[in-house]
Computed example of a mutant assay.
Amino acid sequence: MPPDKPTAASNVSLTRRAWAIRRNALLMGEVQGQGYIGQALGVADVLAVTHFHALTYRPGDPEWEGRDRFYLSIGHYAIALYSAMIEAGLLPEDELETYGMDDSRLPMSGMAAYTPGMEITGGSLGHGLGIAVGAALGLKRKGNPAFVYNMMSDGELGEGSTWEAVMSAVQWQLDNLVCVVDFNNQQADGPTTQALATGTEAPKWEAFGWHAQEVDGNDLDALVQAFDTARALPDPRPRVIICHTRMCKGVPFLEDREITHFIRVEPDEWAKARAILDAEVPT
């Protein structure tokens, strides 16, 4: 374990971290009565592994130069990242109740100017990986051994700017870059596999020169292995981990609902969803 990784991560299970991220997201969603909760519940396991296994950072010093960078290209996933950052001690828990409110540091779409520890402003999809390529190149030129992790959506696989960044990362041999794709097969206008993605993405990335892995994004053991493999590779290639996640994971009555890009949750269902999580608190 790197010495600047939060020490609390060693004695709290990743299962418990993922549970807390889901619960934080539900609490924030209830504050506004809305939010991209389907994505937040689905990607909670991935964020548990990034923030409590893979990343090196100092909770009390978000600008520490030696930190690994985590770039959220998908701005509307901010509710998920805030949930992880609160659990990690990067944000105070009491700010959870301000989510999406005027003057809050937790706007509904992630913005670096508002939120300590939010590395980039996402939202115009397809831009995050290009920013990550520039950051990874800059770190290498400065001799900084930190990694850059870029989380993007499966919908961004249809953006031309994404593939320009893919090619650039190979050209510059950015072995300090890990792209994390949340593949939940949903984008704003329908299933991603009915647009420009096939659902089996690794061969495409490999053809461009990346080291590619596809994993069950709700299997913590598989995720840990994939992130460890990505970090330890000896060859100078950028790395991608395509995480197949299930929207609304952990709340069965939402999982069983007709899945769309934006899940509607009725006012009385927030407490019902929390009660389901609270009935089985992991250790």
Rank of each mutant, 00 (worst) to 15 (best):
S124G: 09
S124P: 14
S124V: 13
L125T: 14
L125N: 13
L125D: 13
L125K: 09
G126A: 14
G126M: 14
G126W: 15
H127P: 00
G128L: 05
G128K: 05
G128C: 11
G128W: 06
G128S: 12
L129K: 01
G130F: 10
G130N: 14
I131F: 12
I131D: 04
I131Y: 11
I131L: 14
A132C: 06
V133T: 13
V133D: 10
G134E: 09
G134S: 10
G134W: 01
G134T: 09
A135E: 04
A135H: 05
L137P: 00
G138L: 05
G138M: 08
L139A: 15
L139E: 11
L139G: 01
K140T: 11
K140N: 06
K140S: 10
K140V: 06
R141V: 13
R141S: 04
R141C: 01
K142L: 08
G143I: 05
G143D: 09
G143H: 03
P145M: 01
A146E: 07
A146R: 06
F147I: 00
F147Q: 02
V148W: 00
Y149K: 01
N150L: 07
M151A: 07
M151W: 06
M151F: 12
M151S: 06
M151C: 12
M152I: 15
M152W: 04
M152P: 02
S153T: 09
D154R: 03
G155A: 14
E156Q: 10
E156L: 05
L157K: 01
L157R: 01
G158K: 07
G158M: 14
G158S: 15
E159Y: 10
E159T: 14
S161P: 02
T162C: 11
W163L: 04
W163A: 04
W163K: 12
E164V: 10
E164N: 08
A165S: 13
V166L: 01
M167C: 11
M167Q: 15
M167F: 07
M167Y: 09
S168E: 10
A169N: 08
A169M: 06
A169C: 09
V170W: 03
V170L: 03
Q171D: 02
Q171S: 05
Q171I: 09
Q171F: 08
Q173Y: 03
Q173C: 08
L174E: 07
D175P: 04
N176P: 07
N176Q: 08
N176S: 09
N176Y: 12
N176T: 11
L177A: 07
L177I: 10
L177V: 10
L177Y: 06
V180S: 03
V180Y: 02
V181D: 00
D182H: 00
F183N: 14
N184T: 12
N184P: 03
N185M: 03
N185F: 00
Q186M: 15
Q187W: 04
Q187Y: 01
Q187H: 04
Q187K: 02
A188T: 15
D189G: 02
D189C: 01
G190V: 13
G190Y: 11
